[in-house]
């Protein structure tokens, strides 16, 4: 009985997966070993039998309704997103994220370099005193949200003194 390693070599020979040297070795084995030749014949016949003999399993439902169902689903999904072509979407996301980051950095740098603005948050400076989300009277932070960039930034203002609100 030929060993498992040789069996797999014979198979690889049949599948064209051997190097020239590997093929030479299997050729020698086949020339001198009757069992190797029988195994080669069996594997070869199975390979030929399977080749081009796959049974077709057609779609078990009406092709038109299958097509309609998928295209309808694609349209519904498409309506849920923007009409921007797919290939541009990643670029736009990147631009939005970069713009948001640049905006925050600019606001931070500007507020640090301007002593007269020390009582204002960077967003106040940048947006002319208007925060993106309305601040509560006693709040010492603001929130910046960008849906397109999927980014939220909370700016905590440690410079402003707390404001006591009367409790009724």
């Amino acid at each position: 009985m030929i060993d498992e390693r040789k069996e797999l070599k014979i198979q690889a020979y049949l599948d064209g997966e051997l190097t020239i040297f590997g093929r030479y070795k299997v050729n020698r084995l086949l020339a001198h070993n009757a069992e190797a030749r029988r195994l080669h014949a069996e594997l070869n016949s199975i390979q030929e039998l399977l080749h081009h003999n796959e049974l077709d399993h057609p779609l078990p439902e009406d092709k038109e309704s299958f097509r309609t169902r998928i295209t309808h689903q694609l349209r519904v999904e498409g309506e849920g997103t923007s009409r921007v072509p797919n290939r541009i979407r990643p670029v736009l996301k990147w631009v939005a994220a970069s713009a948001a980051t640049a905006l925050i950095i600019f606001a931070g740098v500007y507020s640090l370099m301007s002593p007269e603005n020390s009582n204002q948050t960077p967003a106040h400076v940048l947006l002319g005193g208007e925060s993106i989300e309305p601040e509560a009277a006693n709040a010492s932070f603001i929130t910046f949200k960008s849906e397109s960039a999927k980014l939220s930034v909370v700016w905590v203002d440690t410079k402003s003194s707390p404001v006591a609100s009367p409790i009724n």
Binding site: H57, P58, R67, L74, N86
Partner: peptide
């Protein structure tokens, strides 16, 4: 690629049998 679902539907019509066949041959479950 430009968002034409009609064109994509045509591709579905052409190849849906082959795609189903490959899925069935591996999964063996309708």
């Amino acid at each position: 690629r430009h968002g034409d679902t009609v064109a994509f539907g045509e591709l579905i019509g052409r190849h849906s049998d082959k795609i189903y066949n490959r899925a069935f041959s591996i999964m063996r479950n309708r």
